[in-house]
Amino acid sequence: MNFDELFGHFGQHTVDGLSKGAIYALIALGYTLVYGVLRLINFAHSEVFVVGTFAVLGAWTAFGLQDNPGAGQAILFLLIGLVAAAVASGGTALALERIAYKPLRKRNAPPLVFLITAIGLSLVLVEILGLLLPRLVGGVFPTLFGRERQIVGMPTLIEQKALITIGDTAITNVQAIVFVSALLMMAALDWFINRTRYGRGVRAVAQNPETAALMGVNQDRVIMLIFVLGGVMAGAAALLWSVRFGFTQSSLGFVLGLKAFTAAVLGGIGNLRGALLGGLFLGLVEVYAATLYTSAWEDVVAFVVLIVVLMFRPTGLLGESLGRARA
């Protein structure tokens, strides 16, 4: 038990935990949006995120990013990465819905069929990224992938530097970018769902699909919209991941997806603000646990905390429904 380390640099670990949790929260939004409307856990969402990281890698390589470019170039590459990741992730999420889930819904398949389809899709996507992509793209960018299923690194876009130092707690520029961008994305999504016409449609379908249809809401379009929104958020998370950690791998999604799903449940699945709270909370708990014991224990502690929270608040920290989200 390393209390000295935990309390000696408590501020630093809090900053680390928040920036870790911000990425969980962005991925968690995809689970929560789809669950809120369809009562479906889209387990393939973790691969939607991984597709985004590969899109960032591809776009940066194609445009010839070198390590540590100047500020102007860095902003340009951030935008390129964001567009590539958002299009790839949003497109993948939409394709999953059109190809796999929509036909099932038309035939009124039972919920278990959706669940096993989602798990199957997740495995298929992992192998497409791991086996097929290196073979297809490897010819064009021979240095990009190495061998099949290999971990691949990306150039450093922004060199980490301490931005603000309070005592011995340093907030780096990259951590600040990750945290602030994640908050901005979430605020924008929250505004979209709660304040716009399309958002009203989403909330209406989440509350009562039949009534919404009677009132003239196009259910199919709403469902496509939430898959795309979740995908775009995952794409943003993929860009932030690439800036902060700079590597990807076909099997990256499994652990991250599990954590993001946990964050969604912790905050109250189907609840957007809950996803944010759950993600940040999980990030903090993990970093504190890894500091106090070792990283080998962080998942154990995180899941014990999850179980304890769910014992007292079975619907998560902020409660469940998207439609009735507390303002």
Binding site: E5, H9, D16, F245, F254, A290, S295, A296
Partner: peptide, 14 residues
């Protein structure tokens, strides 16, 4: 100690 398949190492780095 870290775990297999771990990606984020903030605590270890600290």
């Amino acid at each position: 100690k870290i775990q297999e398949r771990q990606s984020q190492f903030d605590a270890t780095v600290s």
